[in-house]
């Protein structure tokens, strides 16, 4: 790891100021991706601004169906929140399968979303739940937030402070993890609202990251059952292909994961 300078702000305002004064600063959330990347010398920030000690970025609030999760909330906290589990158990289940127990104790929802790994789980949930990404300067709809592989709509120095969404009537997430890395080779988050609106968001498979599958959404809006997915075609031409799975294999996985998610919702 190259040399770096560590800072520990107590407020969002202080964090933004610290990044502004750094030559090439990076925010450090749980660090479960960033520290590993720095060890490989694939990232070499001059300064690290630690977001783990900012009280205003922590915690989960549920008001009726309205949910707010502070960006510095860990996967473990999301997974084990009883009040969140009462309105949207799907997001708790998703969090409980990220990485391993030790990683879940450090990694945060804000860090995961800001990193936008194409195989990360949370981006699918954000897109399907029509979540709002709240930053220190604005609110960004999830649909506008994830702009490509490891790319987001965040400006330099902008911090995600929270995410908000309305808990849907039904939701579930199913992923097919890579047997070695456990990252999703295809992960599908399905949502059905009381008004019949359906969202199907796919992670781990898209060549430009997380995406919605309109074909699945239309089929499930007409008939909310696993069988409805059977005749939907999934175009493999925009899907990732690597040594673990071809694009055609991932296309099939998307279908299977969607079926399983609808069955579980």
């Amino acid at each position: 790891m190259y040399e770096t300078n560590y800072h520990r702000p107590a407020s969002v305002q202080e964090a933004v100021k610290l990044i502004g004064g750094a030559a090439e600063g990076k925010y450090l959330a749980g660090g479960m991706t960033l520290i590993a990347t720095m060890k490989q010398r694939l990232a070499a920030p001059s300064d690290l601004v630690d977001l783990r000690h900012i009280a205003e970025m922590k915690g989960i609030t549920v008001n009726g169906r309205s949910v707010r999760i502070g960006a510095a909330t860990t996967h473990r906290e999301v997974a084990s929140s009883a009040e969140l589990g009462a309105v949207c158990p799907a997001i708790c289940a998703l969090a409980s399968h990220i990485g391993d127990p030790h990683v879940r104790n450090m990694g945060t929802i804000g860090g995961s979303i800001a990193n936008n790994d194409p195989a990360a789980d949370y981006p699918a949930a954000m897109l399907a739940l029509d979540a709002t990404i709240v930053t220190n300067s604005r609110e960004i709809a999830a649909a506008d937030f994830f702009t490509g592989l490891f790319e987001t709509a965040l400006d330099d120095g902008e911090i995600i402070t929270a995410i908000t969404f309305d808990a849907p009537a039904k939701a579930a997430y199913q992923k097919f993890p890579n047997p070695a890395s456990r990252y999703a080779m295809a992960g599908v988050f399905v949502v059905r609202r009381d008004n019949g609106d359906v969202r199907v968001a796919v992670t781990g498979a898209g060549s430009s990251g997380v995406f919605r599958h309109q074909g699945m959404e239309a089929a499930l809006a007409g008939n909310w059952s696993p069988d409805a997915v059977g005749n939907v075609s999934v175009d493999a031409s925009d899907l990732l292909a690597d040594l673990h799975a071809s694009a055609a294999y991932r296309a099939n996985l998307i279908k299977v994961m969607t079926k399983r998610a609808v069955a579980a919702a």
Binding site: Y6, G31, I35, A36, P101, H102, V103, N105, M106
Partner: peptide
């Protein structure tokens, strides 16, 4: 529990 190789 945390992995001390991945924390500064």
């Amino acid at each position: 529990s945390v992995k001390s190789c991945s924390i500064l």
